[in-house]
Design a protein around this nucleic acid. Structure first.
Lengths: 209, 209
DNA sequence: AAGAAATCACACTGGTCAGTCCAGTTTCGT
DNA sequence: ACGAAACTGGACTGACCAGTGTGATTTCTT
């Protein structure tokens, strides 16, 4: 019964359009993408595109919203208490590395660039990306920080402040480099791992017990 | 003799065009700006625009390059040895606050958004912004870090690493928020000052003597 | 005052774009 | 198998856009 339902034709077309739209918008931007090109790359008639999404703007908003929503889903849902043994450094390093490996992905970096470039035209999309990205991560991390402090493993008086500091300690450098230097300049997994370990050391020097 | 030379007509027109271009490109983006609108806002004929800059692309590149170049000029040129007394915290806090007050400016934030949004189309402009912004700041700061370490005021083994860490500790949070939340969300001077003091405390906990 | 250089107004080219219209075809639910 | 719903291809509208051509006018230089 959990057999993946054969998607209807309409649904297949819809997905084809969204897939093509993702490729085009991420590469060429909002204004740089034409609906004719989109229809062609979707192997779908222009009419069908408009039947499904109404307008270029609607399609764009729907696409970006959907990409934004499920970005870090698997990352913050696991609110299992953060392991058990007293290895706070190991836990934070692992957390940082996980987060980096998700965020520093070409798809998400391009999305971020696109949304930043369109802040003036689509401020709500940018706010949504902020909410579902950094804000969500920090909120989730703050819970962890509070829990660690409670157990005497951390000396953070303000868990939100600690979470914010750690978050940007982790993301600041790689993110800002990636924004301007392109996807090709993203450090490899090993370098990210080292970065995670390094910022954890700095963080614990200030917030450790 | 240092009397500011009366600018020639040609020069006045040129500046009017650049001024209008700055306003339009920063607000509407590259593709969103039309040359007709530009000519009108410059109070100049379209022919004159093309006589001066040749093409939309040339104008854009020249404008962004000039805005990028002189961004943090007054900030890193003063390579005076960092004050004298042992108040490292005070010095770093002041440095951080100064840098923030320059970078967190609507004009520079809009420029950054524009360039990030056009990374695909104009990768060289993005690289130039990176070089003249973060890279330059970090290089300059690394010299300071080395000097402080030499004098026994800091325990930084690798001055570049220390400078990089401090730089993003300072810029990470406000910059990334500003990119997505718009110019209206930039913290006021007092909040930035507090942020500078806070990150300095964190930094010195890890790198202090 | 005279010639050169810059600027102006404006029409025009060739092209693109978002979105619509339409008549015919394919697919789906029943 | 049949009617409804979805899809197709292609022509079409109205608007906009980068860049050019032209001939007249203004400004700078000498």
């Amino acid at each position: 019964m959990t057999a993946t339902k054969e998607p209807t034709r309409s649904e297949r077309k819809r997905r084809a359009i969204l897939a093509a739209a993702e490729g085009l918008f991420l590469r060429n931007g909002y204004l740089g993408t034409s609906m004719d090109e989109l229809a062609e790359r979707s192997a779908v008639s222009k009419q069908t595109v408009y039947a499904h999404f109404g307008s270029k703007e609607s399609l764009f908003v729907e696409l970006v919203s959907s990409m934004t929503g499920g970005a870090g889903d698997g990352l913050h849902d696991r609110d299992e208490p953060p392991a058990l043994d007293g290895d706070v450094a190991g836990y934070l390093t692992r957390y940082a590395a996980d987060e980096l490996s998700v965020v520093m992905t070409p798809r998400l970096l391009k999305l971020r660039r696109l949304v930043i470039g369109e802040v003036e035209r689509f401020p709500d999309l940018a706010r949504a990306l902020y909410e579902n990205g950094p804000a969500r991560a920090i909120r989730s991390l703050a819970v962890t920080m509070a829990s660690l402090t409670e157990r005497g493993l951390l000396g953070a008086v303000d868990p939100v402040e600690a979470a914010t500091t750690f978050n940007w300690l982790v993301m600041g450098a790689p993110m800002n480099e990636a924004m301007l230097l392109g996807d090709g300049a993203v450090p490899d997994a090993e370098a990210l791992q080292q970065h995670a370990a390094h910022v954890t050391r700095v963080f614990l020097a200030a917030y450790g017990v």
